[in-house]
């Protein structure tokens, strides 16, 4: 059967990169005694797939991992057994059964992601590094003007090339909430917009440039898109699974 687990990544674990998190789960699933299925062949390996790699330095409440296993334990047992072998900084939130169809795997489903972004102390836009007030309005007001633009053109760097792109259509939701900026951005294999890209554009809009290590980014949730009728709606990857 196909299983999807949702987990939280926090604390010191934010410094463990994606490939090492994969290795971590391979070992943790074995420690927990989860009957994970292996590929055939001389060097069998677990069949597992992560929804969307999380960058080093980011924390998250909504990470997903799909894998196949033999029957023999319940959702509740899965969560308990895994949490019993987790190190501090990873917590399993749910252990659900999902559809067997290939098109339903986490990685191919991801369409959007929610983020909470804050500025590191002293790294807010509009405040000079020495702490003097700037004449510009507070960044919170400026942020809604920034979003009101018909288009937001950025240069997106990939491994191979740079290309110019209007990211405004891919910012599905955005608002300032206290000191935090909430963003719902397009994610997945087609157009993956990182929150850094949006914030860099914001700094540029203010005529400033963003220094490295200015942001604290927390991923809240990953979504699949459901095309029904006129509007496209987003459902969390978790909601596609069922307790068993």
């Amino acid at each position: 059967m196909k299983i999807r687990i949702k987990f939280r990544k926090y604390g010191v674990m934010k410094f463990i990169g994606h490939l090492d998190i994969m290795r971590y789960f391979q070992k943790a699933l074995k420690r927990a005694g989860i009957p994970v299925s292996y590929t055939e062949g001389f060097s069998p390996h677990m069949i597992m797939s992560f929804a969307s790699p999380l960058g080093v330095g980011l924390t998250s409440d909504g990470e997903y991992l799909d894998f196949e296993m033999a029957e023999g334990l319940s959702s509740i047992q899965g969560v308990e057994r895994l949490n019993a072998v987790m190190t501090e900084g990873i917590e399993i939130l749910s252990f659900l059964r999902i559809s067997e169809e290939k098109s339903q795997n986490a990685m191919s489903l991801v369409a959007a992601a929610d983020y909470e972004v804050c500025f590191c102390p002293g790294k807010e836009p509009g405040i000079k590094s020495k702490g003097e007030e700037c004449s510009a309005p507070s960044w919170k007001e400026a942020f809604s003007d920034f979003l009101d633009q018909p288009e937001i053109r950025v240069t997106k760097k990939s491994k191979k090339a740079e290309r110019e792109l209007d990211i405004r259509p891919f910012i599905y939701e955005a608002r300032v909430d206290g000191e935090t900026i909430f963003l719902r951005l397009s994610a997945g294999s087609v157009t993956n917009i990182k929150p850094e890209l949006v914030l860099e554009a914001f700094f540029l809009y203010l005529g400033q440039s963003m220094e490295p290590f200015s942001l604290r980014i927390h991923r809240k949730e990953l979504y699949a898109a459901q095309e029904g009728g006129e509007a496209r709606t987003f459902v969390s990857l978790e909601s596609l699974g069922s307790l068993f």
């Binding site: 463990i16 420690r31 190190t87």
Partner: peptide, 17 residues
Amino acid sequence: EILLTIEKPARYLGNET
């Protein structure tokens, strides 16, 4: 800032199983 600048920050975190 240091941990995100250096190679393999996991070398310095402890917290292993």
